[in-house]
């Protein structure tokens, strides 16, 4: 096996899950996500020689993924699938309350405006720092930090409201 092949396989094993998840939160559709991941890794294979720094591999893949996603919108706007129709994570290990909470967070993440959601994806899935997000999105760091704040704040408030509601319901 060529060393390029080995590098590629290592790349797939190490990052395909995170890249798939990132794709999923960009388009909320499993099969489109799989297509995006396929295109992303195929492009990665073709330009694997340009990846010099192993530590940059994940953000390199995310960059490719985001470009592929943008191309998808140039080609055609797919219909978004409603989250409720899509089987999500296996929640069997969670208790009912935690599962409900997770479902709520997911719905809230999906409802976030894209400009809030994407910095959050970069931070949590991609492991980017604020500066890296700013560089990737072409924004200044203050804007990025504000968006991250608003994104998380929305999620936080939604969770607080729901537990408030539950308390009231229970009371």
């Amino acid at each position: 096996m060529s060393s390029k092949q080995q590098r590629y396989e290592a790349l797939v094993q190490a990052f395909h899950k995170d890249i798939y998840r990132y794709a999923y939160w960009l388009c909320h559709d499993s099969s489109i996500s799989q297509d995006l991941v396929q295109e992303t890794f195929l492009r990665a294979w073709k330009s694997l020689d340009s990846l010099k720094d192993v530590n940059a591999a994940k953000s390199w893949l995310i960059t490719i993924l985001r470009r592929e996603n943008a191309r998808r919108f140039e080609r055609k706007q797919f219909d978004l699938v409603d989250m409720d129709d899509v089987p999500l994570a296996d929640d069997t290990s969670m208790d009912a309350e935690a599962a409900m909470e997770q479902q709520l967070i997911r719905r809230q993440i999906q409802m976030l405006a894209p400009e809030y959601r994407e910095p959050l994806l970069m931070q949590v899935i991609g492991g980017y720092s604020g500066d890296e997000i700013a560089a990737a999105l072409g924004l200044n760091k203050n804007t990025v930090m504000t968006r991250l704040f608003r994104a998380r704040n929305q999620l936080k408030e939604a969770l607080e409201n729901s537990s408030e509601l539950r308390r009231q319901g229970n009371g």
């Binding site: 094993q13 997770q102 967070i105 997911r106 993440i109 994806l121 899935i125 998380r152």
Partner: peptide, 15 residues
């Protein structure tokens, strides 16, 4: 919680 919510299932044979 956000991180685990983002961790949606990945199709098994994707790799």
């Amino acid at each position: 919680k956000i991180a685990s919510a983002l961790n949606v299932d990945v199709p098994e044979d994707l790799a």
